[in-house]
Simulated scan of single mutants.
Amino acid sequence: MATWPSSSDPSNQEAVAIRKRNKSDQIKFLIPLIYAPVLPLIRLTLRKNPVVRDRLFTAVLVGAFAHGSYLVTDLYDIESK
C-alpha cells in the first residue's frame, strides 16, 4: 500500500503553490473566446459603414495576433529558463 506525502512535505507545498498560481495565470488563454464572436459581429453590425467596419476589424485582428504572439513568446521564454 502506497503512502501519500504529508501536507508538511516542502515539495508538496511547492507544487500546490505552483498549481494555485497557474490557475490564476490561465485567464490569458481564454481571451480568444472573446475575439472569436467579436470579429463576425463587427462584420455584421457595421455592414452599412464599410470604412469603420474594415478599420475596426483590422484593429481587433491585429490585437488578436499581438496577444497570440505575446503568449507564444512568453511560453518559449518560460521553457528556456
Rank of each mutant, 00 (worst) to 15 (best):
S6W: 03
P50S: 06
D77Q: 13
V52L: 10
P50L: 03
S8Q: 12
Q26Y: 13
P40G: 00
R53H: 00
V52T: 07
N12K: 13
P37Y: 02
V51R: 09
E14R: 14
S11E: 11
V16I: 14
K81D: 07
V52E: 04
L56R: 03
D74A: 13
I34D: 00
G68D: 02
F65A: 07
K20G: 07
A66G: 03
S11G: 08
T58E: 14
V60M: 09
Y35C: 00
Y76Q: 10
V52S: 03
M1A: 12
V60H: 05
R21P: 02
Y76P: 05
K48T: 09
Q13W: 06
R19Q: 08
S69D: 05
K48L: 11
V38E: 02
N22M: 06
L61F: 12
L56C: 06
L56D: 03
H67E: 04
W4C: 06
A36H: 04
R53A: 00
E79M: 14
V60T: 10
G68N: 04
S24M: 15
N49E: 14
Y35K: 00
R21D: 11
Y70D: 02
G63W: 00
N12I: 11
L39Q: 05
Y70P: 02
A36P: 05
L46G: 00
K81V: 08
F57A: 07
A17L: 07
P37T: 04
S69W: 08
R19N: 10
G68C: 07
Y76M: 15
Q26P: 02
S7P: 10
Y35E: 00
L44D: 12
P32K: 00
L46C: 02
A59N: 11
D77Y: 15
A17S: 07
A15V: 07
R47V: 14
V60K: 04
I34M: 06
P5F: 05
N22G: 02
D54I: 01
N22I: 06
D9Y: 07
P10E: 06
V38Y: 06
A17R: 14
T73H: 14
L41G: 09
G63A: 08
N22A: 10
I31C: 03
L61K: 08
Q13K: 14
L56S: 08
L30I: 10
S8L: 09
R55I: 12
R43Q: 11
V51Q: 09
T45V: 12
T73P: 02
P32E: 00
R55A: 13
I18P: 01
A66T: 04
S24C: 09
D54H: 05
D54A: 01
V38L: 15
V60W: 07
K23H: 11
N49T: 15
A66W: 02
I18F: 09
R53Y: 02
E79F: 14
N49M: 09
D77S: 15
R53F: 00
P5C: 01
A15Y: 04
L56I: 10
D74Y: 10
D77P: 00
V62P: 03
V60L: 08
G68E: 01
I18W: 07
K48Y: 07
P50T: 05
S24L: 15
K48M: 05
Q26N: 12
Y70M: 05
L33E: 02
L61M: 12
V16Y: 08
A59D: 12
Q13S: 06
K28G: 12
